[in-house]
Amino acid sequence: MKEQLQALEKEALQKVEEAISLKELQDVRVAYLGKKGPITEVLRGMGKLSKEERPVIGELANKVRGQIADAIDSKKADIEAEELEKQLAEETIDVTLPGRPVPTGGPHLLTSIVEEIEDLFIGMGFEVREGPEVETDYYNFEALNLPKGHPARDMQDSFYITEDILLRTHTSPVQARTMNMIQGERPVKMICPGKVYRRDTDDATHSHQFTQIEGLYVDKNVRMSDLKGVLDRFAKQMFGEERQIRLRPSFFPFTEPSVEMDISCKMCNGEGCSVCKKTGWIEILGAGLVHARVLEMAGYDPKVYSGFAFGMGPERIAMLKYGVDDIRHFYTNDIRFLKQYHQA
């Protein structure tokens, strides 16, 4: 019997070894370890053995049974691993093939610039205010110290609808409206972005419609040096910490003194190049201390209040910052142009 068991063991292990699939392995398990298998048979015949032989054979039979089971388990693990490997090999894909595209959109470059500037001034305590694009002559001109017949009205030939209604030529009327609403009761600190319109023939540097952002701060004791400080923060955040600013006297009817702000040219670091026309400086915006008459008209006592105002063109800033060479690009909406600035 002992020999019989040993022969069975040898035979079974041989079969396990030869099995190449989980199915064959299962067949081996059933054949040798199943209820009708030869080992069970042997154990069943143990009744015929002597009292002394019984535990020896019993032990041997269990051992053989264990050996076979272990061999099957181990072989099973091997086959499973092999099969998994085969499955994974079959599932391999070419990861260099293009992925499924997701539709992507994005903001218009002008919106990006305007929002960047809005956020920057919000950080300095400014509110963002908007107003109508179709304005009255009063708010667009008269309230800003530009009475009828003023020669400076030539500077901005306008689109009139009636004698008294026109497309706003700047966003300053929003400032006039805001001050008028508050009537000198508290300080005003605001910026107003928006579309403006002028009678210009569209070409590389002119557009009959464009964008403006104007700022206004009216309070007690507002100084020219405050304007310089605020504009310096703006220039450095917008164009880089290395940028210097300078103010030059200029003229606007609604500010006195009036200045223009230049920043040091980024291309040449102020050395002079073709971008800055060899001056080392690039004109960015106009500003000044709010004209006493403008304050007065809006109900602010110029003896108590003073203020500064500034205005800039996002198109110009975008053109400088990103090298856009033609203002018409902003309004043609060529998808190839728009997409260039979706990450801007």
Partner: peptide, 14 residues
């Protein structure tokens, strides 16, 4: 002209 920042009361922008 020096660089200064407005000394007026803090106002929350937004």
């Amino acid at each position: 002209v020096p660089f200064t920042l407005p000394s007026g009361g803090a106002q929350a922008g937004g």
